[in-house]
């Protein structure tokens, strides 16, 4: 691995203006958009084809979801702060903000599990109705993405941060890419929240 030099790992390509990793993560996000786009269009089709559809706010817990929206937006801010601290070579602050991002994401999951728990208590399962099927599938897939983000960030907070000693430039790129992914996860929620809970 180390004996061959792959270009543009931490230096942007002159034509595209980004590094390999960043181009890769953008392509990955493009495919994720298609994934959620497919699910959203399924949701629209099922909803428009259905004779009756419950109003999201009447069955789902809007205050909890609003809290969750706040948590995720804040975590996006702390993610940016983590990256900015690293760019300023302040590793301590970087670790603080990245840790905070992870905690906020865990907070999101805890709130979500309360929401799910209440639904199960009231015997509302994915099989109950198409509304709940859409709700559980979309939010469940989003939760999987949040868990993925937590794993990636935790890796960079603990074992992955050793790279800062050997290759700080590449490490900075990695944090930036992890941030891009995290913002995307945040953005998906910002679409899910109004479409499922409010309208």
């Amino acid at each position: 691995m180390s004996d061959i030099a792959i270009k543009h790992i931490s230096k942007p390509h002159p034509v595209t203006g980004v590094t390999n990793g960043k181009l890769g993560i953008w392509l990955f996000i493009a495919s994720e958009i298609m994934l959620f786009g497919g699910l959203f269009s399924a949701y629209i089709l099922l909803r428009t084809g259905s004779p009756s559809w419950p109003h999201g706010s009447s069955v789902l817990n809007v205050p909890l979801a609003t809290l969750n929206t706040m948590l995720l937006i804040t975590s996006s801010v702390t993610m940016v702060m983590a990256w900015a601290s690293l760019a300023l070579k302040n590793v301590g602050k970087f670790k603080f903000y990245l840790g905070l991002t992870i905690l906020l994401a865990c907070g999101f999951l805890i709130v979500k599990s309360f929401e799910y728990g209440t639904k199960f208590e009231h015997h509302h399962f994915p099989s109950t109705s198409t509304f709940y099927a859409v709700y559980f599938t979309l939010t469940g897939l989003h939760v999987l993405h949040v868990i993925g983000g937590i794993i990636v960030n935790a890796y960079y907070l603990f074992p992955g941060s050793k790279m800062w000693e050997t290759n700080p430039e590449q490490f900075l790129c990695r944090i930036e890419n992890a941030g891009l992914y995290w913002h995307f996860v945040d953005l998906v929620w910002i679409f899910l929240f109004p479409t499922l809970y409010l309208i």
Binding site: A30, S31, M34, L35, L39, F125, P126, T130, A133, T137
Partner: peptide
């Protein structure tokens, strides 16, 4: 592949839900 496969993945997830979780997509 990057742009066309994800909708099938979405469809696959929905069908998996239909089979495993008893939904009716």
């Amino acid at each position: 592949l990057v742009l066309a496969f994800p909708p099938l993945e979405a469809a696959g997830i929905l069908q998996l839900m239909d089979r495993v979780a008893g939904t009716s997509f």
